[in-house]
Design a protein around this nucleic acid. Sequence first.
DNA 1: CAATCTCAGTTCCTTAAGGGAACCCTGAAT
DNA 2: ATTCAGGGTTCCCTTAAGGAACTGAGATTG
Lengths: 150, 150
Amino acid sequence: MQRTSFSEMACSIARTLDVIGEPWSPLILRDVFAGFTRFEQIQADLGISRKVLTERLNHLVEQGVLERRPYDRRPRYEYVLTQKGTELVDLLMVMVGWGDKWLAGEAGPPVLYRHHACGEISRVDLRCAHCGRPMHADDVDLLPGPGAAV
Amino acid sequence: MQRTSFSEMACSIARTLDVIGEPWSPLILRDVFAGFTRFEQIQADLGISRKVLTERLNHLVEQGVLERRPYDRRPRYEYVLTQKGTELVDLLMVMVGWGDKWLAGEAGPPVLYRHHACGEISRVDLRCAHCGRPMHADDVDLLPGPGAAV
DNA sequence: CAATCTCAGTTCCTTAAGGGAACCCTGAAT
DNA sequence: ATTCAGGGTTCCCTTAAGGAACTGAGATTG
């Protein structure tokens, strides 16, 4: 298919989708975060086509989300999260929270998260960066910002 | 293309992607949240193909994220967020936070969020639902949960 | 009461992206 | 000298996205 690029839109959602919105990209990021850092590991874990995996990894590296680094004197590479990529994992954790609540069903969450600071099994919760109180869809108004389209 | 369905994976990220992972879906959700609730409005705002918009809206309704409701005695419909869909907006707000930080550049954020509780322009911040302290990629360990694949 | 208008889709054709299997290259290891 | 493993390429097939034209149902207009 021919696919529209979102990068020209004055919208941070659209721009973010241009970085990780393609099929498989969030799952690749998840794998890297979970410790599957090599081509063969990710390919085997996801069952993704090698061709598509190559394309996605290249794109994520170009976007500065992953770094490709050699781990051997042979031509062997692993992919590691950059700071930019590590901060994308926030997005994954929110997806997990939503999926656990609405889609996991009887069986319960496939993966649990233990928070280092308190040691408890927990999940993320969205708070206002300014006042610390809960911040969800119904708690905000949208206003045009400085980068809004003219 | 033929596209792999993620829904069989024991992973809340994969399952969530099966609901809103297709191209355009998050932007459609954004539009509905922002008040573009009708077919023509969304189509004009996004420039999406009418065919694809139809497919996406149907899928989002099937998944219980949107509700299709008549607003006239003529055959006219609007799409509104269900509770399930409203909670997906959390995901959008986190995308906005990341995109604003890493992709917005000089111009700054295209959209600002004012938090009702404090009245300030703010952004979301991820906190541990248990102890309230920051919870990001480096602050957690992953453990297999009850719904993990056998 | 026929013609027009609007919204909300369908239909149909073209193009390009994903799936999948086979193949290739490089530097160890045997 | 041959085999092996990791990390890709190449090629063909199928299917999804883009885009423009068309349809239908119910107001509204003349």
